[in-house]
Each structure stands twice: as structure tokens, then as C-alpha cells.
Amino acid sequence: MRDMTFSEIERLGAAVGEAGEAFSMDEDTFRVFYERTARPVWAYLSRMTGDARLADDLLQETYYRFLRAGSTHENDAHRRNYLFRIATNLVHDHRRKPRADRVELTEGIDAIDTRVDVNVAERTARRLDLARAMERLKPRERDMLWLAYANGSSHQEIADALGLKRASIKLLLFRARKRLANLLREPGT
């Protein structure tokens, strides 16, 4: 990729204002919304892909698509659900890629060093167990469980984010939770 000249940067800088008009919200509103949602979205992307660097890229892509969507939202919760839906779609797109491009969910977790604080070692071990168990679930089950128990989303919010019917969430969540609980209790099964 070629370097940009000063005139090109100036031109782009001037164009920023024009391009901003095409977005679904103004910059100040976006800043507030971003501060409130970026961390949970990044955590979701990071855990669902198992790749922190990829999560960085997908975070930018999620907000870009959100801004470009141009859709109006009834309230902040609706806006947030829509954001998670975009993030979920991006994660699904990533999963469809050939396996060589993907990393396993357990890959980013550092090996346990028993010399460090016992609590840290235990926590890392638990995280590794969770990542291994999550890896054995279906992608949709993973998304659903994360949204429900890590993100604290309601059934309606999960349905909105995953594009499912609200009525089916209860049963699907029950099954996914049962599987994960069994895997966590007996990691060998």
C-alpha cells in the first residue's frame, strides 16, 4: 500500500465531516455510546473468536457497520442489541473461513506457571477449562451462553442479537447451559 501525501491527508480530513453526515449518529452521541459498549463488545468478540488481535479488527468493523447501517433505534437497549447482532454476524463470517486462518479458543491462554500467585494459576486453569468446554459447544450455544451469563442479556436481547425467536431462547439456553455445566464438571466427557 502506498503512503499518503499531505494533500491527500488534508483532503481526507476535510472529507471526514462530510462522511460523518452519512452515519446513523453524530460524533458526540457515538462517543458516549462507544464508551458504554466497546468493552463488552470487545470481550464478546475476543472470547467468541479466541483471538484478541482479531477482536480488535472486528471491533472496528462492528462499529463501522453499525454507523453505516443508517437504521433508527427506539432506545439505547435496541441500539446495543443491534451492535451485538453485527458482532455476532462478523464472528460467524470468521468461523466460515478456512480453519488455517482461525485460532483455537484455548490458543491465547498462557500456560500455567505454578510459581506465580496460586490464585492466578487457579484462575488461568479455570479459564482454560472454560475455553476447552466452550470449544466443544456449537457456535450458537457459545454466543447464547455468553450473552446470557457474561453479558447479562435478557431473552429478548439474545433473540435480537442472534436473530432467533424469543420463544425458542428458553429451551435452547437450557440445553446449552446443561451441556456446558456437564463439560465444566467433568472436563473429560
Partner: peptide
């Protein structure tokens, strides 16, 4: 969340700026 707080998350301004450049 602890991982992301370690200066990983880009600022809102940067995300906005990148988005506008890309949109343009």
C-alpha cells in the same frame, strides 16, 4: 474486561475517524 483495559481498546475518536475515512 481486564485484558481490554490494558490500553488495547482504541479511543472513540480514533474509531470514528477511521470509520469516516473509510466511508469517504
Amino acid at each position: 474486561r481486564h485484558e481490554v483495559s490494558a490500553a488495547r481498546l482504541p479511543s472513540a475518536g480514533l474509531v470514528w475517524w477511521r470509520a469516516t475515512i473509510r466511508a469517504r
